[in-house]
Design a protein around this nucleic acid. Sequence first.
RNA 1: GGUUCCGUAGCUCAGUUGGAUAGAGCAACAGCCUUCUAAGCUGUGGGCCGCGCGUUCGAAUCGCGCCGGAAUCACCA
Length: 628
Amino acid sequence: MRLLWVITAFLCAFRKKRVGLRFILRSNQQHMSVESIVQKGVSDAIKALYGADVNEDQVQLQETRKDFTGDITVVTFPFLKISKKKPVETGEEIGAYLKENVTYVDNVSVVQGFLNIEISRDYWLSSLSSIIRDENYGYAKPESTGHTIMVEYSSPNTNKPLHLGHVRNNLLGYSVSNLLKACGHRVIMVNLVNDRGIHICKSMLAWQKFGEGITPESSGKKGDHLVGDFYVIFDKEYKKQIKELIAEGKTEEEATKTAPLILEAQEMLRKWEAKDAEVVALWEMMNSWVYGGFDETYKKMGVGFDRIYHESQTYLSGKAIVQKGLEDKILYQRPDNSVWADLTGDGLDEKLLLRSDGTSVYMTQDLGTACQRVEEYKADQMIYVVGNEQNYHFQVLSLVLQKLGYSWASQIKHMSYGMVELPSGKMKSREGTVVDADDLMDEMIGTAEAMSNELGKLDGYTEEEKKNIFRIIGLGALKYFILKVDPKKNMLFDPKESVDFNGNTGPFIQYTYTRIRSIMRKADEMGIVVTDEVSSDVQVDNKEKQLIKLIYRYPSVIQDAGDTLSPALVANYVYELAKEFNQFYHDFTILKEENTDIRNLRLILAKVTGSIIQSGMALLGIEVPERM
RNA sequence: GGUUCCGUAGCUCAGUUGGAUAGAGCAACAGCCUUCUAAGCUGUGGGCCGCGCGUUCGAAUCGCGCCGGAAUCACCA
């Protein structure tokens, strides 16, 4: 039961400190990155001008602000102590050296302490021409790092259908897995299904008592929803009994503990643990209904797993590990035989690992499954995509594993994400404010359909084709809406206002893609062949250069997003790219451009932008349509 | 109370090695379709970046202290 709901964590503690700027290496890249060129140049300049050694990593760079001319800017303040001159003077001296001695530096200008550098057209054009030849631009070679990372996500309970909270979890888990793959890691996606426990028994009992033999087939209802209904029925009947008992004079606490229904549910759990044939059969039947429903939801959402674990199989594991810890005196036993880890020295509390009756708890199971996974998959790292409400749990998990002496304990990362809040506050099933995952997806697709029909651009398409486009747009809107937000932050979702289709949204980006596809189709019809060859003496407008620079940034965006486990970085980058392209599209004609070199350059820009949109969106688990 | 996280425009969000005048979208208002898809583009208005102190050439960003919000601190998972 990992996913109750909610937030953040201590990602930062694990976040790798970046040293200097990233050097982008690709098999077919002939030259160094802009950053490296400038850093090396400045380092050389300072040596030549002032006789001091400055490490290339220490040269501070930033993108040149749009209101100044230049592509990249060196901050000169840190060098003033070396130059013993004023900022402007220092900047001018370094700038002059760069312009004189560094190949791709075309022009320099100094504003206050900032040295703005213009990189030559040749550099950008040759970058573009190598980018267009790279089929997997931005992605590292698959499994090239030699690291195996396990990503656990989703982790639902089998007593009710998936809701909005799971949606964020699933989208994040899936997207982060994609990102890590794109960074060259081997990734194994796993799901730990909570298929046992008292809450499952509640649904089972309610079905037994009130279900009258109803099944998903007989009712036409999705299995997970049907089971969820009985969970609600249990709760209702249970409350009724509590009320009656209180009316008879019992205290609320007594009533809660002694209501017949809860006693029966507990009895059922005992029978389940004793492997009572009848209970197990019921449990298997109802779980299979739920799995059927989940599969449908996962499929619609577009997520999947390499391996599914069931808590019914893992909940006993970890006991041996705890026993060993006890023998090694890392853990201790209380007089009632319960086993504890004392974490007070680390600023935390004491944590129970085995109950007095010897049975295990949530933590025990996680200790066990972690060890099992390391052995089974030789995982170098394990990432748990779980809401921030469980920050404490994972802090303890990592700490206990460390104390037990597992060298890989520090490789456990809790990818803690924030809760999705509704305008009314938290989702509460009892108050009927839960946003169901299936309903939500259907609504989004319905909205896409209504909007599309209103615009009437798909007239003449078959129903089949239209349906698929509505699905792509509706889900694109939902997924983008959720993924563009920094994972660790709580976010607000307003079901009434639904999700926008204009502005910084999935459909906006998809729309940009369809525009590009439309151009490419038309070019094809006109018999225009887009060549990979970028003419080196073609005029490049500022807007075009702007686009090239954005395109150039893509690989480092993927790296950053992978390092920080943040799909939001990719989402916001793709939006920026789409926006930039739309401006370009608005200002320039492409197909009607008469100069064929310029036309070819613009077609290349369109083509590369289109494939980055497609691949970036794919990292987010979002499809792009050919038309909309 | 302890621990962790969050606080940026009316609303939803960007802003990650500390850098120049803090950016988008939505909403509001004003424009742009005989020209490659107007789900687009352009413009206007809108901000003590929660508050204070400190570090420094420079702080939305780092440190400390407050204020406000969230989560958690079970022999539940």
